[in-house]
Design a protein around this nucleic acid. Structure first.
Lengths: 331, 331
DNA sequence: ATCTCTTGAGAGAGCGCTCTCTCCACCCCT
DNA sequence: AGGGGTGGAGAGAGCGCTCTCTCAAGAGAT
């Protein structure tokens, strides 16, 4: 009751295994009638090539590891960026018939597991989603002689192609919007400073305040709603007079809005709020959130293409995608 | 520059390939000194077994397909249930050293792809996340002689083990809460009626209204925020006097809250709202959402264990997990 | 001392496929 | 009519591993 082999197909079609293989792999050097006979045999037998045997000889696996190196599992579940990126990358790879092996690398133990797996030749390449600065994975993987690309600029300056959005420019645009609408005391809830996105968005904030002669008021969160709520309360204690806050991602902005509401501040009348990411939920907050949109799905798709380029022997340059200010009611 | 083989390890350790293989696979019939020699050789050479060769002979791959059959890609990205389930299943499989191959089956074309892939022997088993009733995948896969388990009860009565939560009981508890707090006109925003969760939650709603002599007022959404907002506007037109609404998931409840706000209704004073799922965002709505909590992560983990049982030859029974009413401010 | 039994290690087949090499047959050119 | 060229098909090696079978050597029993 085991699955039919190429041998069986060849026998049924009355040809050699080599010819059957040619048909399966779409080579054109097979006479039409023989090709048809083989195809019929394949159909009748329900033949499907054995992938292990195939990749044993071709040294290819046609699968790609998608490594999500995210220590905070909560963030992974709640931040739609991750699932959007995963979905988009997955769909893009589907078009070239490659499989996605999903690996969550949350702990040091799983890092070792990922490294072992990848060096085991299970996959042809690696896509890395890691915003974490201290993450040893980018450099570890780049040493493995396996094609690696990254979603987001790796924190350590390692030589792997990546796709990122313009975090600094986006943050600047957001804060500039607050300045231009006459806000005087503009605080920020920054992301984790060991994440590249967290750092860059804070840099953008600082750039604009410096140039426009405002004072900076900073609290730091970890990109969760909860941390946004906590940071907002902190900011209100630090400077009760603040009239605007630039929040490094929408999830924290949602938490911040709640804290502002609980503190009796009206948004945007008393305090303007600008987020970052433009997640779907941003349209449904009270009031709807002004935020920076960046194309997560495109970014993931671009990452896939970068990897495919690498397979072709190309040496890919980093890609930076633009962000766009979406003005709603919160600022 | 190619990777070392077992042959090389054996040569370096001065033993046969068979003995080296025994050490690699942890068999105990190897003398300690020889074992050490082999381990040293492995270490020095940086040997990692070739997975293709191994699974060619063992007929195992140690990877599991996680098939997410979700036509609405928007829902996949925005509903944290999916990522929570994926993360939890992934972590559970990690403990038994199996890999997750993620497959998104959104279109008919990708259905064929999934079937082909799975019948290609790439994976040892399949976990199916499919809430969609008309989905041909459960029955198709169960025909493939591959172990299959499902997250959520399959719509068609096919003989595959599954883990689900008590949708009917949960909905009943939610609606009963509305009845008991004195609401008279209790509407519902139901989920898609081609999804089992959508059906069951509507059934629960109807059960309670029938028993307590209330009239049912139904609108149907598709589990997205947007559809919740649309459905709520519809309900308000249908029955401006309604004073409560049971919404089949939290995402739609978020949309419903927005529509209620825009219509000038106060929650819960004018209209009470009960959701379903208890996603993280439910704590951050205005007002925070009363909802039914069910253990998504546990459900996914239980699904994994069901599959592992199947590998052991066990014949697993469906598992139903309880839901819990979480009372916040919206009802 | 001989025989049986156990333990530990090697030989070698074979998993299912790809791909190079070889060969055959036919066509065109001179 | 003969020779070189070309297209199409087969033979067979080998990818790296596991696992059965076989065998050698030593322990224990008679």
């Amino acid at each position: 009751m085991r699955r039919p082999t190429l041998e069986a197909v060849a026998a049924r079609a009355g040809v050699s295994r080599a010819t059957a293989s040619r048909v399966v792999n779409g080579q054109t050097t097979v006479a039409p009638d023989i090709r048809d006979a083989v195809l019929r045999a394949i159909d009748e037998l329900g033949y499907v090539p054995n992938s292990a045997a195939r990749s044993l000889v071709t040294q290819r696996t046609d699968s790609i590891a998608l490594v999500v190196s995210e220590p905070g599992t909560r963030v992974f579940s709640e931040d739609p960026m991750f699932s959007t990126a995963i979905r988009s990358a997955s769909m893009e790879l589907e078009t070239v018939n490659k499989q996605v092996v999903l690996m969550l690398a949350s702990s040091a133990k799983s890092h070792a597991r990922v490294e072992r797996y990848i060096s085991g030749g299970h996959v042809d390449g690696v896509m890395l989603i890691s915003m974490h600065g201290a993450d040893p994975l980018p450099s570890a993987l780049s040493r493995l002689r396996v094609p690696v690309v990254s979603y987001g600029r790796p924190a350590v300056p390692v030589q792997i192609p990546y796709v990122d959005n313009d975090n600094i420019g986006g943050a600047e645009a957001g804060v500039r919007h607050l300045v231009e609408t006459g806000r005087r005391r503009i605080a920020t809830i920054a992301g984790p400073q060991d994440m590249i996105g967290g750092q860059d968005r804070l840099t953008g904030y600082r750039n604009v305040l410096r140039d426009s002669d405002h004072r900076s008021i900073v609290a730091v969160g970890d990109f969760t709603r909860e941390s946004g709520a906590v940071a907002m309360r902190q900011l209100l204690r630090d400077d009760p007079e603040l009239d605007a806050v630039f929040v490094a991602n929408d999830l924290m902005a949602v938490g911040a809005l709640q804290s502002l509401r609980q503190a009796g501040r009206r948004v945007p009348d008393d305090v303007a709020v600008v987020g970052f990411d433009d997640i779907e939920a941003a349209k449904y907050t009270e009031p709807p959130l002004t935020t920076l949109r960046h194309p997560v799905a495109e970014q993931a798709a671009a990452m896939v293409r970068l990897l495919l380029d690498l397979f072709e022997g190309g040496t890919s340059e980093p890609v930076i995608l633009p962000t766009e200010l979406v003005v709603r009611e919160s600022a």
